[in-house]
């Protein structure tokens, strides 16, 4: 067994935790715990970005770690908590499509993305390239979460955690994107959540529920 340097080991550990958190989010029923898990995922992401920054000495990675911490651990969970309080959907226990089945599909997705990542990560020369598979797996799992959820807020959290996975992929494969791109994405996510928050109120006013199945029918004859 080849001995990795300590920071690579810590990044591997954080990657594994990220994957575990993605699974926890996939199987979580309560909206409030979902937000906590999302905040924990953001924290793991910020720490791993910080470690990569400390090791490679790239100043802009410190910035992106800071932005991640501020946005995904503090701001977005706060906004989501406030939304839930205002919408009064705190006790919204979601009827999931059979947790064990979802879990098994998730495992298949992980195997798929690990296989997909192996040839790609061989092209990459960074210390953290092994984590690319985990980053792809968390993107896939967030996708699955968005597909299996019916309510609006968990879908938005799935969308946000997909962005987490993409961000992790960017850090692990290429040591992060240019600062402008990162700032753009961060702002996009923030504005996106704000706009979706307004949408929630509109959807609920229209249908008396946040169940997105109501949006699937076309309203005719009105």
């Amino acid at each position: 067994m080849s001995a990795l340097p300590l920071h690579a080991q810590v990044i591997n550990l954080l990657a594994a935790i990220l994957l575990l958190l993605a699974f926890a989010m996939l199987t979580q029923r309560r909206v409030l715990s979902l937000i906590d898990l999302f905040a924990a995922q953001g924290l793991a992401l910020a720490v791993s970005t910080g470690i990569v920054a400390a090791y490679t000495g790239q100043a802009h990675l410190w910035w992106s770690a800071g932005i991640t911490l501020a946005l995904k651990v503090v701001a977005l969970p706060w906004i989501l908590h406030r939304l839930i309080r205002r919408l009064d959907v705190k006790w919204d226990v979601e009827r999931l499509v059979n947790v064990p089945t979802t879990m098994l599909i998730g495992i298949v997705l992980v195997v798929f993305s690990f296989n997909l990542a192996v040839p790609i990560s061989q092209l990459s020369g960074t210390i953290t390239r092994a984590t690319l598979g985990i980053a792809m797996a968390s993107v896939m799992l967030s996708f699955l979460m968005m597909i299996t959820r019916r309510k609006a807020i968990p879908q938005v959290i799935g969308f946000l955690s997909m962005e987490n996975g993409l961000f992790f992929a960017a850090t692990s494969a290429t040591y992060g994107m240019p600062m402008v791109v990162e700032l753009g994405i961060a702002l996009d996510v923030l504005v996106g959540v704000l706009i979706l928050g307004v949408f929630f109120f509109q959807i609920r006013e229209q249908f008396d529920s946040l169940d997105l199945q109501h949006l699937e029918k076309l309203q005719e004859g009105e």
């Binding site: 067994m1 080849s2 994957l19 699974f23 992980v110 195997v111 690990f114 092994a130 984590t131 985990i134």
Partner: peptide, 13 residues
């Protein structure tokens, strides 16, 4: 347990 196995296969640790 399955994740542990997959993580070991991917990360080698």
């Amino acid at each position: 347990a399955v994740l542990a196995m997959l993580v070991h296969l991917l990360l080698g640790s």
